[in-house]
Design a protein around this nucleic acid. Structure first.
Length: 433
DNA sequence: TCTGGGGTCCTAGGACCC
DNA sequence: TCTGGGGTCCTAGGACCC
């Protein structure tokens, strides 16, 4: 089918592959008994719903639903609840991306559950068939169901993916926008608020001027778009019209590393917050070293609970630039504590804090300090700490300033699945017949 | 009691320079 | 009378994404 125009279309095609209800699907890989049953995954502290199976969606549980509000309802309807298990999802993601990169060298890992693929020079391949092959391979090897959209541009591949998801019976989970007519049809079908790159704010304004669909958006004058959405909007319009202007982005390395938590209660005292900051630094710096990067600066921020309108509000961030690149937890923590002291004010109830490392450079390109002593980055010490912590799967070696589990640092995760793939002590047991 | 966490990019405006 | 102008760098904040 569709072979008539297979050989005269443009020779570059973009694909968007994404895992269906990814976190839920990851949990189901190890609990196949939950297939066909309603399942949700909760955020940190078991606060809100962040992933839902189709059955859970059908029950009317919205994204972001407060767990405490829905707990009864879920129990009554037999919904299986999991606390988020990010190490597991991250590992499954890596496996999925590895499989995808077998099918084309041009791949952009866009998020934990999504990747853009680029097919250049596949003129004599039936890409629709090829996409089914990709889908089936991922399913066979790691048990994750995916949807695939194909189109002449990136933003259209997003649209195609959405169609594949929306009409699973008709499409089989794969949809290819391979003609002008299909572009127009798809754009007229897609509500403007569902366009990739148009969020809540913009769609409100667009609706106000009568723009309802993606197609309507592409008919707006460039002047309006430039004025209200900047160059990003202009690019998006072109890309949606089928002119490929959005390229695959091969991020050589990430640009920032953030660690933050919303606390399960509020804290006012300086010491507790200092301990949290230290813990955040330890986690972020560990990630930094894992990616073989060093940071040239950091941000520390603290904030009160903005949902609690009765409480006195205070939000403050402090930016520090280091005199040299570093990946040492000790060095970074020293700067983080200094920054924290600048912004901390007593008398407020803090609900969230975080640190962000930025201006990251590969270890080799690190900026050295003028009087760099061999040990100013504690690289040997950090190696030892990382080795021990990696081997046990969590932070057992800590700075003296870091908080520990006893003090409630560990977030509430009452419904955690096991770390099947990343922790030797928790691998799934297979019984041979 | 209860409200996620981790990212990216763009723009406007100020400081500063010649 | 009539407030120069153009360039760069930096930062804060907005908007978006999953």
């Amino acid at each position: 089918m569709g072979n008539s125009n297979l050989h005269n279309k443009k020779s570059i095609v973009y694909g968007l592959v994404d895992g269906n209800n990814f976190y839920v699907s990851c949990e189901r890989v190890f609990r196949p008994d939950l297939n066909g049953k309603p399942v949700v995954v909760l955020s940190n502290n078991d606060g809100v719903v962040i992933s839902r199976s189709n059955e859970a969606k059908a029950l009317g549980i919205p994204m972001g639903a407060l767990f405490f509000e829905y707990e009864e309802f879920m129990k009554k309807n037999g919904v299986k609840v999991f606390s988020a298990n990010f190490p597991l999802y991250g590992d499954m993601s890596k496996r999925m991306m590895n499989i995808l990169s077998e099918f084309t060298p041009d791949i952009e890992v866009y998020s934990i559950d999504e990747a853009f693929l680029k097919f250049a020079g596949y003129d004599f391949v039936d890409l629709r068939e090829y996409a089914f092959k990709i889908k089936n391979t991922v399913w066979k090897y790691i048990g994750i169901p995916v949807g695939i959209g194909l189109a002449p541009t990136k933003s259209l591949s997003k649209v195609a993916n959405r169609i594949a998801k929306k009409f699973p019976e008709k499409t089989g989970g794969v949809y290819y926008i391979d003609s002008e007519e299909k572009i127009v049809k798809a754009l007229k079908w897609l509500p403007v608020e569902d366009v990739w790159g148009i969020g809540r704010r913009l769609s409100k304004r667009l609706n106000a001027i009568g723009v309802r669909t993606a197609y309507d958006f592409t008919q707006l004058p460039d002047l309006w778009i430039k004025k209200n959405m900047g160059v990003t909007g202009l690019r998006l319009k072109q890309d949606l019209l089928g002119v490929p202007v959005l390229e695959l982005e091969h991020l050589s390395h990430r640009k920032s590393i953030a660690t933050s938590r919303t606390f399960d209660r509020v804290y006012s005292d300086k010491e507790t917050l200092q301990e949290y900051i230290s813990s955040f630094v330890a986690i972020a710096a560990h990630k930094l070293r894992k990616h073989k990067l060093k940071a040239n600066g950091l941000v520390v921020y603290i904030r009160t609970n903005y949902h609690n309108t009765k409480a006195k509000q205070y939000t403050k961030t402090e930016v520090v630039t280091f005199p040299f690149s570093t990946d040492s937890t000790l060095v970074i923590n020293r700067y983080a504590q200094e920054a924290f002291s600048v912004i901390y004010r007593p008398g407020y109830e803090y609900k969230k804090a975080g640190v962000v490392l930025f201006d990251l450079v590969p270890q080799k390109m690190a900026r050295r300090s003028l009087f760099d002593s061999d040990d100013s980055n504690h690289s040997e010490l950090m190696k030892v700490i990382d080795k021990i912590n990696d081997s046990v799967g969590h932070q057992i070696v800590r700075l003296a300033a870091q908080s520990d589990a006893k003090k409630g640092w560990k977030s509430k995760q009452s419904k955690l699945s096991r770390r099947y793939t990343t922790d030797l002590n928790e691998v799934i047991e297979v019984k041979a017949k």
